[in-house]
Simulated scan of single mutants.
Amino acid sequence: MDYRLLGRSGLKVSALSMGTVTFGNDGSWGDTELKDAQRQIDVCLDHGINLIDTANVYNAGKAETMMGEALTDGRRDRLLISSKVRFPMGAGPNDRGLSRWHIIREAENSLKRLKTDVIDIYHVHEWDGLTPLDETVEALDTLVKQGKIRYAACSNFSAWHLMKALGVADAAHYQRFVAQQIHYTLYSREAEFELIPLGIDQGVGVLVWSPLAGGWLSGKYTRHSKPESGRQVAGFREPPIYDVGKLWDIVDVINEVAGAHGVSGAQVSLAWLLQRPLVASVIIGARSMAQLEDNLKAASLVLTADDVAKLDKVSQPNLPYPYWHQQFTATDRMGEADLLLHQPYIGN
Rank of each mutant, 00 (worst) to 15 (best):
I149A: 07
D120M: 03
R113K: 10
D117M: 09
Q146W: 14
H123R: 02
K145C: 10
S110A: 14
D134T: 13
R150G: 03
D134A: 09
L130Y: 14
V124E: 08
K145M: 11
T142R: 13
T116I: 07
D117P: 07
I149N: 00
R105C: 06
A153D: 05
V137E: 06
T116V: 11
L140W: 02
G147N: 07
R150F: 02
D117T: 08
D134Y: 12
L133C: 05
I149L: 07
G147A: 05
L133R: 13
E106G: 08
V124Y: 04
D117C: 10
L130S: 15
S158G: 14
T116Q: 03
K145W: 05
N156M: 14
L114G: 00
Y122L: 09
R105N: 10
G129H: 11
S158D: 10
H125L: 02
D134E: 15
E108V: 06
P132C: 15
R105Y: 06
K145D: 12
E135C: 11
L130V: 12
E138H: 06
D120C: 03
E126D: 12
P132R: 14
E126G: 08
D120W: 00
T142S: 13
L130Q: 14
L111D: 02
N109P: 06
V144Y: 10
V137N: 07
L133E: 08
E138L: 05
L114H: 00
Y151A: 04
T131V: 15
V144G: 09
E138S: 09
A153Q: 08
E106T: 02
K112W: 07
W127D: 12
E126K: 08
T136M: 02
L133A: 09
K145L: 12
E108G: 07
V124C: 14
D141K: 02
T131H: 15
D120G: 01
T131D: 14
S158T: 13
K115P: 07
V118C: 14
A107M: 10
E108H: 12
S110T: 00
E126A: 12
Y122P: 01
V118K: 03
L140G: 13
Q146C: 10
H123I: 01
D120V: 04
L140S: 08
A139D: 04
A152I: 10
K145I: 08
G129V: 12
D128S: 03
N156S: 15
L111P: 00
H125Y: 01
V144P: 09
L140K: 11
V137F: 04
A107R: 00
V124K: 01
K115L: 05
G129W: 10
A139F: 01
V124W: 05
Y122D: 01
S110N: 05
Y122T: 01
G147W: 01
R105V: 06
V124P: 08
L140R: 13
H125C: 02
D141R: 06
E135H: 12
E106H: 13
W127G: 06
D141Q: 11
E108T: 10
L140T: 03
Q146A: 15
N156A: 15
T116G: 06
A152C: 12
T131Q: 11
K148S: 10
K148Y: 10
T131Y: 15
R113I: 03
V124D: 03
V144S: 09
T142E: 13
R150T: 07
H125I: 06
R105L: 06
G129T: 12
D141W: 11
E108P: 06
V144K: 14
L130R: 15
E106C: 14
L143H: 12
D141G: 11
